[in-house]
Every structure is written in structure tokens, then in C-alpha cells.
Write a protein that binds this DNA or RNA. Sequence first.
DNA 1: TATTGTTATACTCTATAACTATA
DNA 2: TATAGTTATAGAGTATAACAATA
Lengths: 147, 147
Amino acid sequence: MPDRENRLEEAQRLSRMLIGSTERAKADFAEIVAAFGLPAHLARAVLALNTPAPMRELAGQLACDRSYITNLADQLEERGLVTRVPGEDRRVKLLQLTASGRKVRDQMSEAVAERALVMRKLSAADRKTLAPLLEKLLDGESCAGSC
Amino acid sequence: MPDRENRLEEAQRLSRMLIGSTERAKADFAEIVAAFGLPAHLARAVLALNTPAPMRELAGQLACDRSYITNLADQLEERGLVTRVPGEDRRVKLLQLTASGRKVRDQMSEAVAERALVMRKLSAADRKTLAPLLEKLLDGESCAGSC
DNA sequence: TATTGTTATACTCTATAACTATA
DNA sequence: TATAGTTATAGAGTATAACAATA
């Protein structure tokens, strides 16, 4: 039945393009932030620290374990980009950008805003078309609900 | 300068949606093929073996190292889904689906064609709109060319 | 007792390098 | 000499579990 074959091919083609775009976007990001001496995972953390945040919270934002945040924090501290400051609740430590960290964040923000793949390759109209399509893909239940 | 902040936010929002969609699509695929007792990486290999292929070639298609293909082939052979058959060039081994492997591939093809995220969540019209946008993202030089 | 961050450790995925058998 | 597949090993990235301090 060629119809099923066609649907499979369309599914594979589109899925592969989606995956490929994401890989490209990630590689692009990595390349942009490498100019600031940061690997992607550290850069993401810096960009997330717009305001000082408990490590716990950062773990939520970056969708990773608390223990891994300890890791990131160590690396960022070594580079002089953040400091750990005690929270009111004395169990909590806030990660706060240093002056140097803020500078890096500001420059990185600008670079990413200008050169991120989705901004470079797509017009404003394209982006306006793309967003709702991606929202549909993200919307509601995953396969778990229907399979 | 709020304009730059806005552009950064748009870039981040769209990038995150793109990445999220891909993650969702991958998770979906994993869930679909799990019904056939296969982890995603083995399922991809089975779907790629439409016709018997040298391990080298499969490494190309799956974008991974030859040594990793040896791994996959071992696991697929253990499950009775493929056999290694000698090529004309006696250095080469072709991976060929067994009868059982073909059956799994056919059933998986059907399941993926029906239930893949991009097919379930998007109309035919949506997919027709999405494809050229992703092509733009994939098109031409990466950041290396312009940064 | 529950929660924060830390530590030590383990695991998954994949690649690298050295090896063999062919060519 | 170069190539296909194999083997053993190593690394990146991240999680898990037990722990100390605090709530």
C-alpha cells in the first residue's frame, strides 16, 4: 500500500528536518557563545541568571538535577562569572552574576539576539508563521495519551 | 534598550519551542517503537534497513561511527531481527533483516506513519507550511559562515 | 521530618585507537 | 597501502544516593 509508505516517508522527512533544525540551532548557539569562552551549558546558565536565583530554581529552569547545578556553579565561579550568596533561608544559596558575569551576559544576549539561527534565517513573518506550528507540536498530551 | 531585550526573548522563545518540539517528537517516537520492544536507536536502524546495507553505509545514514554500528548489529542480531551476510567484497558485511525483522519493520512503519508527532498534531496544510520554514533553517552555511 | 546544596559514584551513549582480514 | 568491521577502552554529560546543615 503506497499510501502508508508515503505517510511514513513524510513523517520521517519532516521529523528529520525538525531534528536537524534543532541540531543546527544548538550548534549555532554553541558557536556564538564560544566567542565568550563558554560551552553551551554554562552559557545557558549565565543567560538564565538575569536575576539572582536559588540553585534549586535554576535546576528547574534548566531541567536538570540539583547536583549538576553544583557542578555548573563551580565552573562559573572558577571563571569569576558568578558568586554564591546566602539566601534568607540559610539552606539556600543564590547564584548571582558578578560584574564580569553581567558584562558577559549582556554581550552574549546581544550576540544571540542578532545571530541565533531562527533570527538569521527567518524573516519576522516566517517566525510569526512558525511559532503557532511549533505550539501545536508542543500542545497537550504526548503520545502517552493516545498510544 | 528594550528592542534588543525583545529580540533576545523572541530568539530564546522560538529556539526553545524548536528544541522542545524535537524532544517531544523524539520521545513520541521512542514511545511508539517501545511497543515493539525496541529502544529508539535500534528502531531507527531497523527502519533504515529497507534493503540490506553494508555496515559502513548504515554508519553514514545514522551519522555515527562504524564501531557503534557493530554494537547495534550485535543487539539486533541477539533479538533475531538482522543477520550479517557477507558481501562480494569479502571485507564487507551486509546487515539484512530476518523475516521477523521485516515484520517488525513493517508494523513499526505503519505505527510511525500514523502516530508520529508531526502527523498527529499537524494537518496536511500545516505540514506543507512547516516544511519550507525548516528548510530555511537547514539551508546553506551554519553560523560558521557568518560569525 | 523535609528540604537545600554537596559529594562520591555510577551509568548511558558514543567515539577513538589499535587490531584483523581482506583488497 | 588503504579499507571494513571488530575490540577494548575512554570520555562527556548527567543522574542517583547518601550526607550535612538548616527548617
